[in-house]
Design a protein around this nucleic acid. Structure first.
Lengths: 240, 240
DNA sequence: ACCTGAACACCGTTCAAGT
DNA sequence: ACCTGAACACCGTTCAAGT
């Protein structure tokens, strides 16, 4: 396309030097987060971000010492956003509460891959603000369990177990999505699982999916863990 | 250091052109795996690998179309190695069996971070050989559960749940190791967990560790899941 | 058939220089 | 104080050329 009349010829993407106060930490974080949402953390690069901001690459380094420091800021942003998106549940019995809570926990990550990349794959958090959000969340969730009769130590273990399990499922989902190859799982198994040499697996063909973290899988594991917790609670109550 | 007499001056690191048949797919994989073990997958680069092999960078591209294809080969190598390292357990009751099996499962990854990088963080596997190894493993492990009375579907869910949970723990461990900052967890919590505003968490301080996947945490989750499975088994047996 | 270096488009980061 | 481009050491990959 030839340059239109009245248009000064410029370097592609940016025409003028940005005025002094026009850039800010916040704008950089916001625009970087946009890029991560649109593509992924791995795709984020300083030159790309600079173009998206309409700035010279090096300008970003005035606000962040390194890309790593920028990512830390994005993780904090993600933690805040996660906290806003997560619904709060009240009035459920402890087991239904856990079920709803971790179902939502998983959904938020599955529906927002950027949050998954920044939180699940970037633990541990280095931001004080993010830690505080986690502590507040834990206070609320542990209270539900302690009120139901769980000793504090067991309540903490219960939350950790379900949190790690759920994040494990979410990671699995994310890796499968990134690989982006919906292979015909059942056929692959069927071709290997000969009834003679693999009697059990050949029976399992109808339930097979190579992802270990489908909705169905997640629900099954969630139920298993909650039933286990139920037994622990019964013992704790009997002791008291 | 001045070049010694009789030594021809060469480019640093490699003196002669390698003879024709001297390089091979296998050697590349072996040396690449060495690098991943010594550093990490993220640190692996084609130039580094070429230096380690004493070859020109581009020679590698005769054997692998891309770095991605090379990594796929490394994943297969890792899967084979994992299969060799994992001990086999026989003669245990189903619950003790699961306990020993997944304890070992976790240990292998914790002690071999390269395997964790290549298997846990690189799922799903694209190699047919790796898939076959997994199916064989599943056949053996599911048999233990089915023999104990689990329906095939429930046995599969049980394995998946514990596998995802264990890999979740391993990932967490790995991320904490990579971050490499053994912060004083308990103090961090104590400074935030005011008994007035956070009564439950302030009681939890003595059990706190910011990693959700310590040995103790893992064992607790493992027990919880196995207890849940015990209940499911009891129901399945009652039905039969 | 196998190994090679030059070259390209990218990346993160530093530095000295503009305003 | 804030924004800039030039420059550096890296990266993955392609290509035409050696043997």
């Amino acid at each position: 396309m030839p340059p239109r009349a009245g248009q000064t010829r410029t370097k592609p993407g940016r025409s003028t030097r940005r005025p002094r106060g026009s850039l800010s930490r916040e704008e950089i974080i916001t625009k970087a987060f946009e890029l991560v949402e649109a593509e992924s953390v791995d795709e984020l690069s300083m030159p790309k971000l600079a173009r998206h901001l309409g700035v010279g690459v090096t300008s970003i380094y005035w606000y962040f010492r390194s890309k790593d420091e920028l990512i830390d800021a994005l993780v904090e942003q993600a933690a805040t956003q996660f906290d806003e998106i997560m619904p709060t549940f009240t009035g459920y019995a402890w087991d239904d509460h856990l079920r709803h809570y971790f179902r939502a926990f998983r959904r938020v990550f599955v529906e927002n891959p950027a949050l998954c990349d920044l939180i699940v794959l970037r633990a541990p958090m280095r931001s004080e603000r993010a830690k505080e959000l986690i502590f507040r969340r834990l206070e609320r969730e542990l209270k539900v369990l302690v009120d139901a009769g769980f000793p504090v130590r067991e309540a903490l273990h219960a939350y950790k177990t379900l949190s790690v399990y759920t994040r494990g499922c979410v990671l699995q989902d994310r890796l499968y999505a990134a690989a982006g190859q919906p292979t015909d799982d059942r056929k692959a198994l069927a071709s290997i699982a000969d009834p003679e040499t693999m009697p059990v697996m050949s029976q399992a063909v109808e339930h097979w999916s190579s992802s270990f973290a489908t909705d169905d899988d997640f629900e099954a594991g969630l139920t298993t863990a909650i039933e286990g917790l139920g037994q622990q609670l019964a013992r704790a109550r009997a002791q008291a």
